[in-house]
Amino acid sequence: MDNIIEVLNLTHTYGADTPFEHTAIEDMSFEIKQGEILGLIGHTGSGKSTLIQHLNGLLKPDSGMVKFCGRDIWDDKQFTREVRFSVGLVFQYPEYQLFEETVERDIAFGPTNMKLSEDEIRERVLYAARSVGLDDSILLKSPFELSGGQKRRVALAGVIAMKPKVLILDEPTAGLDPEGREEILNYIKNYNKETGATIVFVTHSMEDIARVVDRIVVLEKSKILMTGTPKEVFSRTEDLIRAGLTIPVAAEIAGKLAKKGIPVSPAIYTIEQLADAISTLYAGGGKNA
């Protein structure tokens, strides 16, 4: 797989030379692969928000570089603007950024800024709305009449309408009820499957996304703590807990069983995997799993 985004020795400091000086990212390097679903996980203040704002050129690195498709995103002005559209960023509680009179016009904001033709904009609005399960009949309503879950999806559609190659979502399920959480995750997975776009989930809770992601980058105090597949990452539960993160319940139980001398793999992180392991042990009289 090719790398669609490369982060090289990135450093960013806020309020340099004031008493409030704070280094949010320190000498960070990692890559995001074309088409993968990546989990970017870290506790509040680990530098997540600052990092993602570098990925679409909202913030400029103090030192180091962010490359999109092999090219420095600050190479020239035109390219920086292109990256803004190619790397879609959905902030936390994106429904608070809705402003247009109708849902349709709000979703069209991004494509309009891209200076696309009327037809193309219309086509993209419909596509984006459908891809998050919004009915066409909702398009002419005011976004402020909708329910919380619907608003969230309108805001998500507003970014999807730009057809970004990389879609970055900061806590996309925060504050939703269980059904709403599940729906949002499914729409995003579908977008990945249908378009081959790269997805980055930014979160401090792993329970929801553990089953969805291909790879995880864990941040701690402005630096990368570890990178790997969910299996690799969740087998280091103690490091994760120390970094202020919660781990999936399945991984937690597996860890407790291992401590009791029961031979379960430390790489377990979903309920299904754990149930499988227990069933095997149970059937095989506890010898091997």
């Binding site: 879609g88 960023l89 902030f91 608070y96 950024q97 991004g110 800024n113 891209m114 970014v159 730009m162």
Partner: peptide
């Protein structure tokens, strides 16, 4: 803080 956030979000959708 909120203004900052909203500005970043709209910039992400290409607002200039």
């Amino acid at each position: 803080e909120e203004t900052d956030k909203i500005m970043s979000a709209q910039k992400s959708r290409g607002a200039d």
